[in-house]
Design a protein around this nucleic acid. Structure first.
Lengths: 229, 229
DNA sequence: TAACTGTAGATTGTCGACAATCTTCAGTAC
DNA sequence: GTACTGAAGATTGTCGACAATCTACAGTTA
């Protein structure tokens, strides 16, 4: 079969245990903003919501704490983590280094099919800049970078990168969601793709790092602006 | 006070909850090799050992699973993770990128006191190469790199790096612990320290990355050798 | 002997309950 | 009105128990 990485619900329930299922569910709640940043997470409520006891919920929360998506205070509960600008800066520092590595690796081992998918995503983003569909641009942008790290062919790198991305996503939820610069951002994507297509590993790495740097700058500008909608 | 990062036992027990305490305890068991690589971890045994019920144990194990120190199979239990050479290679890929960043940052912001500590550690390693005290060299080497990442002044980078280091440590426990090259390794340390002392950020980054690359090569040589003691 | 089957024991998965702690808020004193 | 006190309610921390599942092994059959 072509798509081996799509497990059925049956397999999911059989292989993953309840805490694991609950974990991704809670993660969605956090990353979608349904559980507000800084808010306390009530174990009983979640247990009720998912139809389980508190045990599995607690296990899931402990895992999410390790992901740094929540923090825990003894006898007070767990809270959705709030990321400061300083912390986001730290993450960007690491992300820049990883992005350079990703660019290099992808340029070395990308397949024609993968390159096609990347270009398709970039073109889709072009459309959203025309229609100013910010939400969709973000989703595509996330998908684009997720594909990139996936295509780098290093599972540990993927894990590390995704962990960072989740943290940055959490930061964006803090409210100061940056507007502007979509067209610019996507033009950077295209430059990266060009370097990748030409197999220029060093250049692809540099360009993807530069993209992360610019992305950080956009983040700062958005954070500095009062609160644009 | 000079050293603020040394909490008393009282603070530890009051702030951290039982699962957190148990987690570091189990982590020690794994990293010290008392829980063998690949071995199944028995929840009841651990509960008995730490004088708790299985609840806190399970929470700790879920956190350790997120650290990738153990893996979990539904209805079969959790196992101490065994790292393959291929996985170790992946980790080194990421580590090399991070080490370059670390070298750069430390060169930019190291204090005289910190530099003194680093040099002291390097000198201590020199002594162990003379006496062929491999165990002590490894401990000092770990401490040396831990200091470096700490002095880079980026908490998220530290977390990311330590996670990787734990994984690599787990790999070493797999048996094929590399001998040889200690003197060479430490001479690389000294070159890094020189670049740091001179404030040459780019060079310090390159040298620390190169050190990681050589370290990976040493790992490969050790893995290729049958099983030298 | 080899392969299969079924049972006993061990282990994990999940739950409900209770104690410890925190939070809230009404009541009181000044 | 403000600050303190204490009790009621809510929430977390931990435990022991039971069901579901897996593992090991003795017994059976060919």
């Amino acid at each position: 079969m072509a798509h081996a990485a799509v497990p059925t619900v049956l397999q999911l329930v059989q292989s993953n245990s309840l805490p694991a299922l609950v974990q991704v569910e809670i993660e969605q709640l956090i990353l979608s903003g349904e559980l507000a940043v800084g808010q306390r997470v009530n174990e009983s409520d979640l247990a009720l919501r998912f139809g389980t006891s508190r045990g599995p919920i607690r296990e899931a929360l402990r895992a999410l704490e390790e992901c740094r998506l929540v923090r825990s205070e003894k006898n007070r509960g767990v809270f959705v983590r709030e990321i400061s600008v300083a912390e986001a800066d730290e993450m960007y520092d690491v992300r820049e280094a990883l992005d350079e590595l990703i660019g290099q690796r992808v340029a070395e081992r990308v397949t024609p099919d993968q390159l096609r998918d990347l270009k398709a995503a970039s073109m889709a983003m072009d459309e959203t800049t025309a229609t100013h569909d910010i939400k969709r641009y973000h989703a595509l942008n996330l998908k684009f970078h997720d594909m990139l790290v996936e295509f780098a062919g290093n599972a540990r790198l993927t894990e590390t990168y995704r962990l960072l991305t989740k943290g940055l996503l959490l930061f964006r939820l803090r409210g100061l969601q940056g507007g502007g610069g979509f067209a610019v951002s996507n033009s950077e994507h295209k430059a990266v793709l060009e370097a990748i297509a030409s197999g220029d590993s060093a250049r692809a790495g540099q360009l993807l790092r530069q993209h992360a740097i610019e992305s950080r700058a956009r983040m700062h500008r958005a954070a500095a602006a009062p609160t644009e909608k």
